[in-house]
Design a protein around this nucleic acid. Structure first.
Lengths: 222, 222, 222, 222
DNA sequence: CATGAATGAGTCTTCATTCAT
DNA sequence: CATGAATGAAGACTCATTCAT
């Protein structure tokens, strides 16, 4: 996962072990924070609780993270990394068709959200309305995701030989898609806590998305 | 706006005035909280700051509101009231057509969000990830809005003599619509802070929405 | 009971009524305070609660009493008055014999404490450890009661033609007696809350007291 | 005195020192609280004052004690421990005679009260009429002391081959004794603040007590 | 006189952060 | 490096008291 100091030089065995232990500690703290932030909320979680769960001291937390906010920032980075990695992989599997995009949407709800509920919770709930820095990073991640999706949408349109009704369409589409999946996930997974239901609605959600995208294609030719 | 004690009995003039002043104070505090929560954030705002801005003492704040959380709850109530009132009025103006729904979407971004940016900010950002009670109320409001929209969608489909691909479609549609408008508002208004841009994208957003809705109509078979 | 302004002059009927109402209000507040102080404790009782129970406003409380402490002071005065009145009456009934003193002791536990539990609670518990003024008044009442008892003890000894082993004996005896009855009341009534038990031990307590007094008589030498 | 964590395992020297310092801090805070509670009163003493006197920060007070009430509770524990330890030691010195009991009574006033005036003040004054928990602990201590004394009284009677006029006599006697010494201490030491006088009355108090006890012995008849 | 809304000083309490060992 | 005790600024909240009506 995350690397702390990528001092990829020659190292003695013991130095390697120490290096490994450091990374383990770093990840232990990060994981503990993820668990607690998701279940109790960012403000309701104290550094001491995180340290306890990670089986380290509070001081150690501050060795790896500048402060509580930094912990959340690093967590967001990790979440962003995992999410975009997943999205990239999924998108690659597709053949740049609307069908493929639909499949990714279904997979997002049925696979990603179900398996990474904590990450989703932090991204969609706990990181909201915190400090300016966190908000900025949150926005960045959203922008990047939007951009990823926009690119796919553009690719799809090219492949189909279609254009959009305006230059801003791809972005609007991407933002809409992100909004749809955010709220569907919140509504059916975080609030209703029902991973059955989300399976059911995944298909319809994808249909809705597809309909939206198609509706912004410019009238087809001639 | 908000009424405190609607003791609409016989009252002396002076009693009426005092009653009025009480309501004014209540609203002054609520408005101050709205302003500060929206600009600085809920946690970054202290009761003292709210009191100062409302030109009352901290004690007065606690006379009208049980505690800080209660202030946020009452604020959410007010926001919910205004938002649903606005939505209800707008929806009524439409003739239960997709065209009408699109217009409401446009108006939401171009009118409501621009004129009530603070309310939008609190609803979409500052009320997120707070205590269980606040989260519950937030969810309630979302559910109610979703329900409002679902009803319209059903009405439209009836009027068109069309049905949906599944029984859950109207709800999925409503959730998607809410998600779209939430994120579009956040993206273009709260983050970019550009009320020009939101004017531009309002139309395309409405188109996307319309496409999504239509795509969940069952094939219009004979 | 307590008089507020003893303006015993000529008064119009309405003035008399108003006077009466004032006294009623004064007593209502005092009684409410007594009830609440005894049941919830002095510090746990707010002026507002007292006002509510007395069915007046907080402002009215402050019209009759300088402040919260004054309320406790006046309450102590009332308690002191009732207690010393009762004691005086009871002692008068006796014929200045040890037997008579014993009877008073029994009556104190069986009658007074049972009928005036709230007053006892405030005197023995709630008035303890408050401000300097209250503590002083408490001490004064104790001193007065001690003095009352000392006088009786001296009278009894005179009547018996006996003297004490030292000049300070009567006072020591009185203080001991007060201590005995205070703790017996606390132990069996306030803590065990059992008014049955206190009936049982009243006799033995009186015996103990009697034995103590007699033991401080100087040897009945020629 | 008080031990915090009696981890009597193997410890490095420095760990031992740190452990010792922790206990010292704990005791410093406890002692500061004792001093201030006794002199200014529980409610009139703020945590900040205690921290100042103990030369620590307010945070440190909360590191060792859950809250202000806990501080009082722990103080009461300590007082109870010291008092019962002293009483146990003194009673052991006696040969279970009334004479011995009298001596303990004298020593209580002349030694204990004079040397531990603050503890006495808190036990007899400042811990009264606080929260339910504190009152409960206070009662517990009283009950325990009463029980200790009851046991001695029973032992004495056995040794003398005498019985009491009723089964409840030993307890009544014990409660009376506790009451006597409580009030004598308050009257002469806390109120008059005269440690001379208490020396004088100690003997007579003991005589009174002795007379009381003897008077509850059943007639020594054949 | 009675009312009850307004006041604001006073406290407890939390907890992120630091740093000596 | 890890530890965890110590720090202290910050803030929520209470409630006795006042005073305009």
């Amino acid at each position: 996962m995350a690397k702390l100091n990528d001092t990829t030089g020659i190292m003695s065995r013991s130095a390697q072990r120490r290096q490994r232990e450091k990374e383990q500690r770093f990840n232990a703290v990060l994981t503990a924070a993820e668990t607690l932030f998701a279940s109790k909320g960012y403000h309701q979680t104290s550094i001491e609780e995180i340290a306890d769960l990670a089986e380290v001291s509070t001081g150690t937390v501050y060795f790896y993270f500048k402060n509580k906010e930094d912990l959340l920032m690093k967590l967001m980075q990790e979440i962003g990394f995992v999410l975009r990695k997943w999205l990239g992989d999924e998108l690659e599997k597709t053949d740049s068709t609307l069908e493929g995009l639909s499949n990714v949407g279904v997979a997002f709800l049925q696979d990603f959200c179900v398996n990474y509920t904590e990450k989703i919770t932090i991204f969609f709930r706990e990181s909201v309305g915190q400090s300016r820095e966190v908000e900025e990073q949150r926005r960045d991640l959203f922008v990047r995701l939007t951009s990823d999706i926009k690119d796919v949408v553009v690719t799809i349109s090219n492949r189909l030989g279609r254009s959009f009704i305006s230059g801003s369409s791809p972005e609007v589409i991407a933002v809409c898609i992100v909004g749809i999946y955010e709220r569907i996930a919140c509504h059916y997974l975080l609030w209703r806590g029902d991973s059955m239901e989300i399976m059911d609605v995944a298909g319809e959600t994808a249909s809705f998305m597809r309909g939206g995208v198609e509706h912004l294609f410019a009238p087809n030719g001639k």
